[in-house]
Simulated scan of single mutants.
Amino acid sequence: MGKKRVAIILSGCGVYDGSELHESSAAMVHLSRAGAEVQLYAPNVNQMHVVDHMTGQPTEEVRNVLVESSRIARGNIKNLDDLSINDTDALVIPGGFGVAKNLSNWAVKGKDFTVEASVESTVKKFHATKKPIGLCCISPVLAAKLIPGCELTVGYDTECEKWPYAKTAQAMADLGCKHINKHVNEVHVDKQNKLVTTSAFMCNAPIHEVFDGIGEMVKEVLKLA
């Protein structure tokens, strides 16, 4: 069998307004080590806003998600509209606030959010053709919206210093999903929906544990591909 062909969807460049760089890099490293053929994509839309990552405050700039994502991709990136489901075996979406601001409007709408059109179409195509999807950090919210009744994890559902975003788990349940508590270096595999999720930086954990958890996600996605 030839190389597994995996698409990664990015949402910009930088945790506060785009893709989380360490999660994106971890996914790419683990896929590379496994011998997968990777192509990066992003929607050709403007970011919700641009955040100064030193101050955490929005600026007056306007930036494009595809252009900013090309920084992570070293320029080798395509418009998400050009993704061919027939040429791809699996899908991975790293986290970062760009998922909640650019790939969807979760950040401002909460449970009433919608998903950006090209992202929604892509996720639904992978699910309909029974091709695996790997999601980490906040990106499982996309599955919660688009794959009714799925099982997923964003970590733990009890908020504490280690799990500062635990309320997100309850929001997933409110959307009709089954949330499974998992540590940062673990994944949950929804075999019926071919969905693999891990918490990544939803947990206040050392970066190597986040890296290991994403490695488990990649391993399970490739098993299903």
Rank of each mutant, 00 (worst) to 15 (best):
A90L: 04
A42N: 09
V45W: 06
V38I: 13
F126V: 07
T168K: 05
P206I: 06
D81Q: 14
Q39S: 06
G75Y: 06
M28W: 10
M28V: 12
Q170Y: 09
S32D: 04
H30C: 08
K219D: 15
W163I: 00
T153V: 00
T197C: 04
P148Q: 13
V38R: 03
V210K: 07
H22F: 08
E37W: 04
H188W: 03
L222M: 04
P94F: 08
G18A: 13
S32R: 07
A173F: 01
I77S: 13
G56E: 10
N204T: 10
D174W: 01
A166G: 09
I180A: 00
E68N: 09
E61S: 15
S11Y: 07
K109V: 04
S25Y: 13
T122P: 04
D87Q: 14
K78Q: 15
N46A: 14
L103K: 03
V108L: 14
I85T: 11
D157L: 01
D52P: 03
I93E: 12
K124N: 11
D82N: 10
L83K: 06
S199A: 15
F211P: 02
P58C: 10
K182L: 00
P164M: 12
N46F: 13
E209D: 15
Q57E: 13
D17E: 07
I93T: 10
V62F: 08
S25D: 04
K223F: 02
C136R: 02
M172C: 15
G75D: 08
G2Q: 08
H127G: 07
V65K: 13
L80M: 05
T59L: 12
I180M: 01
I72F: 13
L224R: 00
F97T: 09
M48L: 14
A143C: 09
V50P: 08
A36V: 01
T122I: 02
L224M: 02
Y41Q: 11
K182V: 01
A171W: 06
K145W: 06
A100H: 07
N86A: 14
F113N: 13
K182N: 01
G213R: 04
V119W: 06
C150F: 08
W163L: 00
F201Q: 13
V62C: 12
G14R: 10
R33G: 04
G155E: 03
E220P: 02
D17M: 09
T55Y: 05
C136A: 12
V50Q: 14
G96C: 11
N44D: 15
Q47G: 14
E216A: 07
M1F: 01
T88K: 03
E68R: 09
D174F: 00
P94W: 03
G98L: 04
M54W: 10
L83A: 11
L222Q: 02
H188P: 00
S69R: 11
S139G: 10
T168S: 12
T129H: 14
S25A: 14
G98P: 03
G2V: 01
P206G: 06
I214R: 04
E61K: 15
F201P: 07
I214D: 07
G155L: 08
N64D: 13
G18F: 08
R74F: 05
K124S: 11
Q192W: 01
R71V: 12
V45H: 05
V196N: 01
V184I: 10
M172N: 14
